[in-house]
Design a protein around this nucleic acid. Structure first.
Length: 340
DNA sequence: GAGGGTCAAGTCCGT
DNA sequence: ACGGACTTGACCCTC
């Protein structure tokens, strides 16, 4: 039975898509952060105390989140861990903080525990470095920063006991960058073994789509984002499409992951929930791709859900929605609605 | 607590 | 040129 997962955050109520308040109980499952500007305004001692406090809380929150996910139905045991876990880890002024032996010890112990829980409970974990990780940039300084950013995630994977074998955990990025697949290929060779075992690439809505990803499927697995593909091409790709065979091969026997999101419900508020939106018609009606890219709170369209769920035949589904775990739960209920 | 200004970093699209 | 979208709006400060 394949899985339906969610990304980075746990919420208890739908209204929390608009932000989690300090007094909300679900705060304990979610990471916090600070800013470089604030840290730089403090004394070194104050800044370090703040960082240590945030790191401890974030490790605790992530452990609780993973434990919580471990209590769900097996088909829901899949979660992306927030990149905010260790704030300013790759910032030149602050990365020294994480190289101190006492901090390092703290990280190793806590991540080790999280990794054990995940393996024990059959939880599929992943990371998704943010938009600043542009491995194929044409700017050398950006490439260097991006490698550091990627290796930050690889460090966390390694501390959790992952990165030992091909795709025991995924760290997913876009190709991005003007150097495209050639640039990506060149940078790939500079990554650590853990990073190489974990890296996957995801098709984008604008520049690098499924075809470009397939060009480097020999290097690393492809995470097919079926909504990105729809926004780029207008196509609701079928689960028996020959390109999907190639995506599956890129995972070399590991169950692939695909991403599923849908256009915002308030953009398409008049749309029939039992009818898949036609991209051409939407564009003709005056909507633009940028608006259609934005993620919904929930997976509100039954017809689109039916299509997305058909892809569970070959992969695990990562739901990208503002409604987070609540959105993945509702989709799961929809999926299981005919079961006794 | 609420509200407004601020926040490390890249890239693209639409206006 | 600038705002908004993406990974994931949250944090910080003032009232």
């Amino acid at each position: 039975m394949n899985k339906i997962g969610f990304a980075c955050k746990w919420i208890d109520r739908p209204d929390q898509v608009n932000g989690i308040k300090a007094s909300d109980d679900c705060k304990k499952y979610n990471t916090g952060t600070t800013t470089v500007a604030w840290l730089s305004r403090q004394t070194k001692k104050t800044a370090e105390a703040k960082l240590l406090s945030i790191v401890k809380q974030n490790l605790e929150a992530t452990r609780k989140l993973v434990q919580k996910v471990g209590t769900l139905n097996e088909s829901l045991r899949m979660v992306r861990i927030s990149s905010d876990l260790l704030p300013v880890y790759t910032h030149p002024d602050w990365n020294y903080f994480y190289q101190q032996s006492d901090v390092l010890g703290l990280l190793e112990r806590n991540f080790n525990t999280i990794g054990h829980i995940a393996r024990d409970r059959g939880i599929r974990l992943s990371f998704h470095p943010g938009q600043f990780c542009v491995l194929a940039s044409d700017r050398p300084d950006v490439v260097e920063n991006s490698i550091a950013e990627f290796e930050y995630h690889a460090d966390m994977a390694r501390w959790m006991g992952y990165g030992k074998t091909f795709q025991d955990m995924k760290i997913n990025v876009h190709i991005s960058g003007k150097l495209g697949t050639a640039g990506f290929r060149a940078v790939y060779n500079r990554l650590s073994d853990v990073a190489k075992n974990c890296i996957t690439i995801e098709n984008e809505e604008n520049t690098y789509g499924l075809d470009e990803c397939l060009d480097i499927a020999d290097l690393c697995p492809i995470v097919l984002d079926i909504h990105h593909h729809y926004i780029k091409t207008g196509e609701y790709i079928s689960s028996d499409d020959p390109r999907i065979e190639k995506v599956i091969s890129s995972w070399r026997g590991v169950i692939p992951v695909f991403h599923y999101s849908v256009s915002r419900e308030d953009i398409l508020s008049n749309h029939d929930i039992n009818d898949k939106p036609d991209l051409i018609l939407l564009l003709e009606s005056g909507l633009n791709k940028q608006k259609l890219r934005a993620h919904s709170d929930f997976m509100w369209n039954n017809a689109v859900n039916d299509w997305a769920l058909s892809h569970l035949s070959w992969g695990d589904c990562m739901v990208e929605a503002k409604g987070k775990n609540l959105a993945s739960f509702k989709l799961f209920e929809y999926w299981k609605r005919f079961d006794v």
